[in-house]
Write a protein that binds this DNA or RNA. Structure first.
Length: 318
DNA sequence: TCAACACTCCGCCACT
DNA sequence: AGAGTGGCGGAGTGTT
């Protein structure tokens, strides 16, 4: 059983506090067994005041952090006053110190300040509430602060933007741990969208895994292996052994977007990966990701991510 | 920047 | 009767 420890500190925001227990606590396997144990603690086990009109009494103190597979830190408005390692409260520092190596660290909203003060975000991509990204960047110049994203998954250290973006982040983790089917079931149970697209640019490391049992799934897997060349909808429909009309209908009902939109998104994901991990020219990236021309890549990049391929590479190349 | 063209999406409706 | 399928065509989008 995967243990999620929620570390609540003084002034914790009730909404942010509850996200992890709601999302992880709702994840079940096909037999209805819980997939996560969610444990809430405070640094010294004493009740803490919340930002609401009540105090939070807990059973555990920070010692449970040592058992965490995932440590979640919900935001408190007081976190914005943590602008250096010197201002990190000793009890919070002590709690973080108890986490085993390899423990997944998650901050919701302003709690990014806590991780940054502990030096855990140095040289890493991270985000926080949009109202505080400028202040956050100034306080922690070593952090690669991302704006206009819902969350950042920087291999083991995850940060989310304001409030409800914590829901997206927790769903992302459930999806990573147990796949789309479980994550979508949690989203349905909690009546939240399983995957927010909208105008929000999200810098995600990996594309969504294909859902099992969906009839366009093999075709999507096939298309993923053909991204370097043009793929017409008729070709996809033929692969799925459906008429074009049925294919487009089934595709939308399973994936939630049209075949063309999905294809462009997969091409963009591939292009981003190539920009991050290779030194291929933008022309070659455009070619390999199936955009045909660099102009086409740039135009799609701009409308989906609000930036250019070369600017993206300057920020994310590793 | 513009225009012509190609392709895609989806409501509608008939057929199985 | 009702669900699933697929052709048609107009509106919209992307490409050259």
């Amino acid at each position: 059983m995967h243990t999620v420890v929620v570390l609540a500190s003084d002034g914790v925001l009730p909404f942010e506090l509850s996200i992890a227990s709601k999302i992880f606590g709702s994840a079940e396997d096909c037999d209805g067994n819980a997939l996560y144990e969610v444990v809430t603690c405070t640094p010294d086990g004493q009740p803490v005041r919340t930002a609401g009109d009540f105090t939070l009494g807990v059973v555990h103190d920070r010692s449970v952090v040592a058992e965490a597979d995932t440590l979640v830190i919900p935001a408190s408005p007081a976190h914005t006053r943590i602008t250096s390692s010197d201002t990190l409260p000793a009890d919070l520092a002590a709690a973080l110190h108890l986490a085993r190596p390899g423990t997944r660290l998650v901050s919701v909203c302003l709690a990014s300040y806590v991780l940054a003060a502990a030096g855990l975000l140095d040289g890493r991509r991270a985000t926080t509430h949009w109202r505080h990204t400028a202040h956050f960047q100034k306080a922690y110049p070593e952090v690669l602060v991302q704006q206009d994203v819902l969350y950042v998954d920087a291999s083991g250290v995850l940060t989310s933007a304001g409030a409800a973006a914590g829901v997206d982040l927790c769903l992302h983790l459930v999806r990573q741990d147990h796949g789309s089917a479980v994550a979508n079931a949690v989203a349905r149970l909690c009546v939240v969208p399983p995957w927010r697209e909208g105008g929000q640019a999200q810098f995600i490391d990996r594309p969504l895994p294909a859902e099992r049992g969906a009839s366009t799934s093999p075709t999507r897997a096939w298309a993923m292996s053909q991204l370097h060349r043009p793929i017409a909808v008729d070709e996809l429909a033929a692969h799925a052994r459906m008429s074009r009309r049925t294919f487009t209908r089934v595709f939308r009902s399973e994936v939630g977007q049209s075949a063309g939109e999905w294809l462009t998104q997969q091409r963009l994901n591939l292009a981003r990966q190539l920009l991050e991990e290779t030194d291929l020219s933008v022309d070659h990236v455009a070619d390999q990701a199936g955009f045909g021309t660099a102009f086409s890549l740039r135009s799609h990049f701009r409308s989906a991510l609000g930036t250019s391929p070369s600017a993206y590479r300057r920020t994310f190349h590793r």
